[in-house]
Design a protein around this nucleic acid. Sequence first.
RNA 1: CGGGGUGUAGCUCAGCUUGGCUAGAGCGUCUGGUUUGGGACCAGAAGGCCGUAGGUUCGAAUCCUAUCACCCCGACCA
Length: 577
Amino acid sequence: MRYSKTLIPTVKELPADAEIPSHQLMIRAGLMRKVASGTYTYLPIGWRILMKIMNIVRSEMNNSGAQEILMPSVQPMELWQQTGRNVDYGPTMAHFTDRHGRENVLAPTAEEVVTNIAAGEINSYKQMPINLYQISFKFRDEFRPRFGVLRSREFIMKDAYSFHADEKSLDQTYRIMYETYKRIFSRCGLKYAIVEAESGEMGGTGSHQFTIPCESGEDVIVQTEDGSYAANIEKAPVDALLPAERGKICKPLEEVHTPNTKTIGEICEFLKVDSKSLIKSLVYKSEMDIVLALVRGDYDINPEKLRSAVGKSIELADENTIKNLTDAEVGFAGPVGLTQKINKLIIDHSVLTIDAGITGANKTDYHIKNVVPGRDFPIEGKNIIVADIRNAVPGDTYLGKKLVFKKGIEVGQVFKLGTKYSAKLNAKFLDKDGTEKPCVMGCYGIGINRIAASAIETMYDKDGIIWPINIAPFEVIIVPAGNAAEIIAASENIYKELTHAGVEVLLDDRDERGGVKFKDADLLGIPIRITIGAKSLAEAKAEIKLRRETEITKVDLSQIKDNILNIIENLKNEISA
RNA sequence: CGGGGUGUAGCUCAGCUUGGCUAGAGCGUCUGGUUUGGGACCAGAAGGCCGUAGGUUCGAAUCCUAUCACCCCGACCA
């Protein structure tokens, strides 16, 4: 491709609204432009990169036996109502009414549509397992789009859905996808980490996340020090802390006046105590049940862990529910005297480290002191569960090993869905034994744009992007350094020769000074640069330089093609190795 | 949704506090010339409804009100 005929609007200045390297560089290198908050137009170079990533994903998916399909981005609301996910997604799901008065959804994902297909077309165990995937735009009305393409509203996702007659078959496909994902991210030249994850809103029984560790990541990855276990913070278990000895302190309960102290911080400030002696009490609702969750004041409740402790989906109770329950303003709830009025009490292990704690008095502007777990509120019995329901923090251990924390970008996730969708959408089949059963499902997503962004986040320098060869917009850029006729002619020759040999080449044929071309070549991050200048041309040579290295090699013009083919092969082997 | 911030040339930003001359700079663009291996130089030029709508005033980019857009922080810690 010729630079002079391609729209590559590079910019020198840092864009005002870009904070992280990938966002800045994607704008500066002319890969994309913002249209509105969280939506971007991909320009020729950016789109080439995305297509290269999609082609890697496509070839690996096809090789693993998945079949590509295409589903609509506008989907009927009815399907989402059948699974109830219109409620789960809430305002993140964009929807509109069409001219016939029907509600439509801008697809944030496609479980409903694909399961609907399965319901119609899969009737027998003989048709399974089957794995259907698509690569398409998704729309999620994020409450706060940010970091360029890392959290955008519209993005490209590869989403695959597998259907099975039983769990065992699902396990097999899940394993195949897991291995396929490893190959995909390796081929994209990324260093990834695989962590155990919660299946969250998706429902299901098992999940792994593929993340790219880097500073700009929004996910927190927790690993044991020896690396033998890794999980997302939403899942990461912690060892229970040693409980306090009971009965050492037995002061009676004491009510204290604590006006306007609604937060843990305010209470600590007011009573001059450490947050470790506070028992934080949060009221949740789960369907019709009221659940009280307790955690030590210096920890955070982990809603995913709480959900699995309760066994049902939960949400924070609204203000009125709390007022009715506690007869107090929000901010003064506590377990003492409340256990009869709730359906479930979930106590984090950390609460048992408290020998005499402070908690809300269920009375506006009052707390109680000297609260002894087990004496002043029950810690065992029916509907009382002591569990791990808090977020891991530095200093925690798991299986006796210290936990370390890293940030990462989630680029892919695999889920075992089970029968959540097939049951609700009536995707049933006749099994060998003649009985009707819901299909067992798995689903597997990859964020295409995030692969591009995380590649940049992990591979760039002060001059620009450094693409791994497999997802680079071009493999080679030819820079004629000068306008002399022989330089142009030699450049054109090499361009033709390489293009015919199947190499992806960008020829910088612009009427610009050398410096400008070098700067742009570095910014674009094309892995191999060929420079043709008067000096080396006099010796019938051209220069070859790798973007990631500083060293320049002079090569005879007649050897350029073989040399480049060799370098490309080596760079590719490096990645697959 | 709560808090903070910003909207002035294609881009990055001054000017606004304390209202008043023709609204500026750098980069980019166009013309001519000199240059030509790491974002060149000289001379000239084009380019603005100062986000939008009201208001105050003799007079508004500047003050007031509303509204929209964008960015940052937070949004389960009661």
